[in-house]
Design a protein around this nucleic acid. Structure first.
Length: 756
RNA sequence: GGGCUGUUAGCUCAGUUGGUUAGAGCGUUCGCUUGACAUGCGAAAGGUCACAGGUUCGAAUCCUGUAUAGCCCACCA
């Protein structure tokens, strides 16, 4: 053995040994449950399974991925317990995330998404993702992850899409999917609507403008939207205004008469106590408008420009329009006063621009019927949370959930499977590039005589169907109503989480058309054992998986949700490329070995908290790896080439008793710590025992007795047991040393976990 | 506005159900080419466990309050 451990040469060799041995692929025990009971204890161990939180396919590895080491520890531990273990890998097309990255790339090339028809753009992004997808896989192998690569899935596989469409159809047939015009969170820069979860509410210092509306004064932060006002509302309990309810207020600049109404949603103490109602640009106003049957007008369009206002403002962005409006109001003497206001504003989580609440038709999932069983499942403990405090967070969210907008106006993702007949719906608005790559916009009625259907379809960028448009959740050759063949699919794509919410079902071979005909894998591994992920996608993903699992399969997708820790830099900042504070996991494995990196991500870490990974810590763990190497080198050099099959453990030397007792205790404690998800402590326990008890004390003590077979026996026993305890954490070095032990029969990865 | 979490050695953090001298890594000091390891060995210094009350035979650990940091949720325009 070399004097120092060399991870570089060892790791590739060891990983291929595991892969070739097929140890990552579980052997499904098909003994029927009846017989399994009869033979309990012999065969029929319960399976252990984890679905990997699917990384974005275009995302190169970062420390966040390396934290999946936790999952590898669980899998390797259960594998050593003799359970059939499935760790299922995959990657996600990651809709908006990927398109955002791709658009940045386009921008560098001086182009934008508007320069391409949607099928061309889609193909370009597809190829971009394919270039990167393999990289991610090889990187995860470098980290020693014992994933079953034979069961790898990608979110855009045809089978998966088929299932997602079937699930969508089922939701629609059950009345749980609807298309409706509502105020949605629209980002005019990303060009798409978002769900509530994708809006960041950040504090901002702005101004509150008091405006003269004739008989009443109102206060607003958005004077540029007064052109879309349809009423002024006051609180019915507000005595100041009782007399003027029912009278007309006058919108300044345009001198439009609007009614003064009353509604409880208006805060008496805020501003003047009177709220201008702008249903086209505010969710509360929309709600009030609906209640009072008021019309909704838009003065900002989806491109973020002013419309339906006054000529001076037409085409301006709201920010400029606001300044101009204030000036106009001031000149007209309608601006009474301006005061600073500190409040929260919605921002696009992706591009950080202000979210524009806009009125538009979107596809929604009626969520309460899905949330209800999901709440029950958590309350009944069918899904457990670790740390337990996340159960409360989950329940709070589920109990206050709002309908889920699942449509995105982006290209990268599967289109919603709804088809419109253009002849039945001539008012559908269409954006497309004609043969000469010129941008054309208009309703179908306006353009149908100038362009062929084929030309429109091939150059299509997007379409917007009026809310009353008829559609079929099915691709027909002809319109069932008018027999037209000019059918066109919805251009809105699915929210990525709509697909990934069904991930555990679809990767395991669930059959949504006929659940009883789902695959063997599904029947065997579902529900999976643990879902381990970062808490930041608890609502986005974990909650959605639970809802879909219960709705489609009638069972939760996993029994335990384990929230792991987040890696931050020395200043407590999240690592990100833009902050250039990333420590690249692969650079670290190159320098210090994978085992050192893995251990540094686990050692002394508390769950669901931030932790700092520093190069110093990785070095410390590299030193530990070297310690393991050298202690083993020492022990092995004194061991005979073969050992008796039954070591003399029952009659240890009196001087060895204490270390054997400590070993025993270590096995017990580590096992318990792993079982209870205290991986950080488990790592510390073994470290402490191996280095400070075994190496520092016992080996030093036993040196004079090295010719005593009894001592060698103890050394062998401790080393052998320690390697098994260490293996889930530091799989490469332990497997390598294991192969150098005498009497070697099978690889460490499938050797039994030490018995308590 | 509501909720959650942290505050422990110079630094970064552990401490599972309250129980003997509060731990680790890194750093610091002193001494070591001691039969595997200087990526090492031995020894040492260093903490009123944020603060104030309370419960208890006993509190870093449980309760209340204060300060401070951070996170999540939220339709006061």
């Amino acid at each position: 053995m070399d004097k120092t451990y060399n991870p570089k040469t060892t790791e590739a060799e060891i990983y291929s040994l595991w892969e070739k041995g097929g140890y990552f692929t579980p052997k499904i025990d098909k003994t029927p449950p009846r017989l399994r009971l009869a033979k309990r204890g012999e065969t029929g161990k319960k399976p252990f399974s984890i679905i990997l939180p699917l990384p974005n396919a275009n995302d190169p590895m970062h420390m966040g991925h390396a934290v999946f080491t936790i999952e590898d520890i669980m899998c390797r531990y259960h594998r050593m317990l003799g359970e059939p273990v499935l760790w299922l890998p995959g990657s996600d097309h990651a809709g908006i995330e990927t398109q955002f990255v791709f658009e940045k790339k386009l921008k560098k090339e001086g182009k934008s998404r508007f320069d391409f028809d949607r099928q061309t753009l889609y193909r370009m992004i597809w190829n971009f993702v394919e270039e990167n997808r393999e990289i991610n896989i090889s990187q995860m192998k470098k980290l020693g992850f014992s994933m079953d690569w034979t069961r790898y899935h990608y979110s855009l596989e045809p089978e998966i899409l088929k299932n997602v469409f079937t699930a969508f159809k089922k939701l629609y047939d059950d009345g749980l999917v609807y298309r409706k015009e509502k105020i949605v969170n629209y980002c005019t820069f990303c060009g798409t609507a978002f769900s509530e979860l994708e809006v960041d509410h950040l504090e901002k210092d702005e101004f509150l403008y008091y405006l003269d509306y004739g008989p009443i004064q109102i206060a607003t932060t958005r004077p540029e939207t007064i052109f879309a006002d349809v009423a002024v509302a006051v609180n019915p309990k507000d005595k100041r205004f009782t007399k003027i309810i029912g009278q007309k207020a006058i919108v300044p600049i345009i001198n439009k008469e609007i009614p003064i109404i009353s509604d409880e949603l208006v805060e008496i103490d805020f501003g003047t106590g009177a709220l201008k109602i702008t249903p086209g640009h505010d969710a509360t106003d929309f709600e009030i408008g609906q209640k009072h049957k008021l019309p909704a007008i838009s003065c900002i369009d989806p491109s973020g420009k002013m419309i339906n206002a006054i000529p001076e403002l037409e085409g301006l962005f709201p920010k400029e329009a606001r300044e101009k409006s204030i000036e106009l109001l001031k000149n007209l003497g309608k601006l009474i006063k301006t005061e600073p206001l500190h409040h929260t504003v919605g921002f696009c989580y992706r591009c950080k621009n202000v979210i524009e609440p806009l009125l538009m038709p979107q596809w929604f999932v009626k969520i309460e019927p899905l949330a209800e069983p999901s709440i029950k499942a958590a309350e009944e403990g069918k899904v457990k949370f670790f740390p337990p405090r996340f159960k409360k967070q989950y329940l709070d969210w589920m109990n206050n959930i709002r309908d889920w907008n699942i449509s995105r106006q982006i290209v990268w993702g599967p289109r919603i499977p709804a088809w419109y007949c253009l002849d039945c719906n001539p008012q559908i608005k269409i954006n497309f590039l004609d043969k000469g790559k010129n941008f054309v916009f208009g309703t179908f009625a306006e353009i149908k005589d100038k362009y062929s259907f084929e030309e429109i379809k091939n150059g299509l960028q997007s379409l917007t169907a009026p809310v009353e448009a008829k559609f079929e959740i099915k691709e027909n050759e002809k319109c069932p109503v008018c027999q037209s063949t000019r059918l066109i699919q919805e251009t809105d794509t699915f929210d990525t989480w709509f697909l990934s919410g069904q991930w555990p079902l679809n990767t395991l071979g669930f059959n949504p058309e006929n659940p009883s005909r789902s695959s063997e894998d599904f029947k065997y591994f579902y529900p999976t054992s643990v879902m381990d992920t970062l808490w930041d996608i608890l609502f986005f993903w974990v909650a959605r998986m639970i809802m879909f699992g219960l709705y489609l399969a009638g069972e939760v997708p996993f029994k335990t949700v384990h929230l792991h820790s987040r890696v931050v830099d020395k200043n407590g900042q999240k690592m990100s490329k833009s902050k250039s504070n990333v420590i690249d996991p692969l650079t670290m494995t190159e320098k210090y070995g994978t085992d050192a990196l893995r251990m540094s991500l686990v050692f002394g870490i508390a769950p669901a908290s931030d932790f700092v990974v520093s190069e110093e810590k990785i070095i410390a763990m590299r030193n530990f790896a070297n310690k393991i190497w050298n202690a083993s080198r020492f022990v092995i050099s004194y061991l005979p080439p073969s050992l008796p099959d039954t070591p003399l453990t029952s009659h240890p030397h009196p001087d060895d008793r204490w270390i054997l007792e400590e070993l025993d205790k270590t096995v017990k404690v580590v096992t318990k710590q792993i079982e209870t998800y205290h991986f950080g402590q488990a790592a510390e326990t073994i470290y402490e025992f191996f280095w400070h008890s075994f190496c520092d004390k016992y080996i030093e003590m036993v040196k004079p007795r090295l010719s005593d077979p009894n001592a060698l026996n103890t050394l062998y026993l401790i080393l052998n047991t320690s390697l098994r305890l260490l293996h889930p954490f530091m799989p490469f070095i332990t497997e390598k040393i294991w192969s150098l032990l005498p009497n070697q029969k099978e690889p460490l990865i499938i050797s039994p976990w030490p018995e308590i």
